[in-house]
Design a protein around this nucleic acid. Structure first.
Length: 197
DNA sequence: CATATGATTCCA
DNA sequence: GGAATCATATGA
């Protein structure tokens, strides 16, 4: 019989989004019979972070973002893609971690890809219906990382409008994964090249 | 009420 | 390089 660790619990999520974003690289996400290994995340750190949706304060959209940690924050972007986040830190802080890419492990069609936030949410069926849903109980949860992982760091993607906040090194990824959404510009921590040695 | 835009992806 | 596509945020 296979040992299965318990899902990540409240104390894991009740920390700064920067800490949680790094800790989630290599963790697994489980939902409706699908399992995937998280290989890319980004931290969003509340109202002061001008790249974070929390900058607009508490609105209809950010209700879950300002809610308790350990729940989902899901939003629609560009009218057609959804982005799945895990709420972190303490209630009201507006911290969250965006899941940007994962390696499909089980329960997927053979050619399903999850190398991008929109594609990951679509592949795992993590739509807006889950906005505010708990990851601490029920059929949506995360499992701790097993083994070692080499973590790379870069600036966050797609937030150029945020001025200097766009340059913060708050994106994390598995340096050895072939399922990261895009190679970082920085030479440090670039994912293993597929073409050359 | 009107309008601009986005934590993206896919196509030319 | 540009389009697709629509809920939200913002300002009149």
């Amino acid at each position: 019989m296979t040992f299965s660790p318990p899902p990540l619990a409240l104390p894991f999520f009740a920390r700064d989004a920067l800490v949680v974003a790094r800790a989630l690289i290599g963790a697994r996400i489980v939902h409706r019979g699908k399992v995937a290994r998280i290989v890319e995340t980004e931290a969003y750190r509340g109202p002061k972070d001008l790249a974070c949706h929390a900058r607009a304060g508490l609105t209809k959209r950010t209700r879950a973002l300002f809610g308790p940690p350990g729940r989902a924050y899901v939003f629609l972007v560009y009218g057609m893609y959804e982005c799945f986040n895990v709420v972190c830190n303490e209630e009201g802080s507006g911290h969250a971690v965006l899941l940007r890419a994962a390696e499909p492990l089980g329960g997927f069609d053979e050619r399903t890809e999850a190398d991008g936030p929109g594609k990951l949410a679509r592949a795992m069926k993590l739509g807006r219906a889950l906005d505010g849903a708990s990851l601490l109980e029920g059929d949506l949860h995360l499992l701790p990382r097993e083994g070692r992982v080499r973590i790379g760091v870069s600036a966050r993607v797609g937030v150029a409008y945020a001025g200097t906040w766009a340059d913060k090194p708050w994106r994390f990824f598995d340096r050895d994964s072939d399922h990261v959404s895009r190679p970082p510009k920085s030479a440090i921590g670039r994912p293993r090249s597929k073409g050359h040695p």
